[in-house]
Simulated assay, not measured.
Amino acid sequence: MEAFRILDAIACPLPLSGIDTDQLIPARFMKRSRADGYGDYLLHDLRFDESGQPKPDFPLNASRWAGARVLVTRRNFGSGSSREAAVYALVDYGFACVIAPSFGDIFASNAVNNGLLPATVSEEDCEALLAGLEDGDGTARVDLEACEIRAANLVIPFRVDPVWRTKLLNGWDDIDLTLSHAATIEAFQAKDSSARPWLVPSVRAS
């Protein structure tokens, strides 16, 4: 994964609560190959009407939010089923960060494993940010090193699990995170093998 440190990007406000994973990508689109990309199906039933035409009043369809890489929304984002395809849809669409007061636990874990930052802010800061983006130029700076968002003349702190922050800052997956402790692991193995040699598997010659 690409390391995430500072992101300067268009930030799209989506003032909705409880957007679940089935809304992020309806199940009927999950039969399609990931190689073809899931971005076109992100929030499909909210973005498009029954005839497949974009709804003009939906934020992601507005020209001012075209190319947005930050999504700002309300509480309980990504609740519902554990489908990782919901994260695929966001990433394939182009998002690198979602800002909200709370996230579904499994969604947030899946997000980090795909390089997507789930930045948790207070309800008050979220509402201020949503309003500021509507009235301002719609850009934001997300600084993962400082855990800080700058947008619409606001400076807003955000929270992210420290282990997830380490993974994102370095572009690591779970295996990379484990390998970063290789020296400690090897030292423990050597000490434990000396203290309890009977636990070390013996290798018989064939």
Rank of each mutant, 00 (worst) to 15 (best):
T120N: 06
G115L: 01
F107Y: 09
A119R: 04
D92C: 10
I106N: 11
E123T: 07
L116N: 06
A86L: 05
Y93A: 13
S109W: 00
F95R: 02
V91Y: 10
S109D: 12
V91P: 10
G94T: 01
A85R: 14
A85M: 04
L90M: 12
E84Q: 14
A111G: 09
A100R: 05
V112R: 09
G94Q: 06
G104K: 11
S122C: 12
I99N: 01
C97K: 07
C97D: 01
F95Q: 02
E84N: 14
T120P: 01
I99C: 04
F103Q: 11
V87L: 05
C97N: 02
S122Q: 13
P118A: 06
I99P: 04
Y93S: 12
S122E: 11
S102G: 12
E84P: 14
A119F: 02
L90H: 08
S109H: 11
S109E: 08
Y93P: 06
L116Y: 01
A85L: 12
A96H: 08
D105G: 12
V112I: 07
G94S: 06
G94F: 00
A86E: 08
F95Y: 03
N113E: 11
F107N: 11
A96F: 00
D105W: 03
A96E: 05
V112T: 14
G94A: 07
A111V: 01
A108H: 05
V112N: 04
G104R: 13
N113R: 15
A89T: 14
V98T: 03
N110P: 06
F107H: 13
V87C: 11
S102H: 14
S122D: 10
V87R: 07
P101D: 12
G104H: 06
F95E: 06
C97P: 05
F107I: 14
V112S: 07
T120A: 13
L116D: 04
A111F: 00
A100L: 01
N113C: 09
V98H: 03
I106A: 13
V91R: 15
L116G: 08
A111I: 01
A86D: 03
A96P: 01
S122Y: 06
I99E: 02
A111M: 04
V91K: 13
A89P: 09
A85D: 15
A86S: 15
A85S: 15
D92G: 15
V112K: 05
A119E: 01
A108P: 06
G104N: 10
A111H: 03
Y88N: 15
E84D: 15
S122P: 10
L117H: 03
A89W: 02
A96G: 10
E123I: 11
